[in-house]
Simulated scan of single mutants.
Amino acid sequence: MARKTTTEVLAEMVAAVMEVAVSPGDEVAVGDTVVLLESMKMEIPVLSETGGRVLEVRVAPGDVVQEGDVLVVLSA
């Protein structure tokens, strides 16, 4: 039986969450924007590095995230 793998999409810097572009159950492809962050008046799209189904969204607009925080969990 194959093991199910998950991938965590992480914040790369301290930033505010402007928009969450996915919901649990959504399918994403490599390069899709999953979250839009704002830092120092710049919009920073966070892209999926793998394709899969969104299992969890751990942030909401207005949240402040730290470097390394998990934003979204994907199932491969």
Rank of each mutant, 00 (worst) to 15 (best):
E67K: 13
M1K: 12
E38K: 01
M1P: 11
V28W: 01
V14I: 02
L36H: 01
V20P: 03
G68P: 10
M13A: 00
V72R: 05
E43Y: 04
M18P: 02
P45L: 02
T6E: 14
G31C: 10
D32N: 12
T50S: 12
G25K: 14
V72G: 04
A29C: 08
V65A: 10
A29Q: 12
V14C: 00
L10H: 00
R53I: 15
I44V: 15
S48V: 11
V54S: 06
S48A: 15
A2Q: 09
M13K: 00
E38Y: 01
V14Q: 04
A15G: 05
E38W: 00
A2I: 13
A29W: 09
L10K: 00
V70P: 05
G31D: 06
A2G: 07
G68H: 05
P24L: 11
V34M: 15
L37I: 04
G25M: 14
V57T: 11
L55W: 06
T5P: 07
D69W: 06
V17S: 03
G68D: 06
G31F: 07
P45Q: 02
V46T: 10
G31Q: 06
V54K: 06
V64N: 11
V22D: 01
D26M: 13
V20S: 03
M13D: 00
K41W: 11
S39T: 15
L10R: 00
P24I: 11
A76Y: 01
L47T: 08
L10S: 00
T50H: 12
L71D: 03
G52R: 13
Q66I: 10
D69Q: 09
P24K: 09
K4P: 06
M42S: 10
L10F: 00
E8Q: 08
K41E: 07
E49M: 09
M42P: 13
D26F: 14
E56A: 12
M40G: 08
V54Y: 09
A60D: 09
S39W: 14
V72T: 03
I44K: 04
Q66P: 05
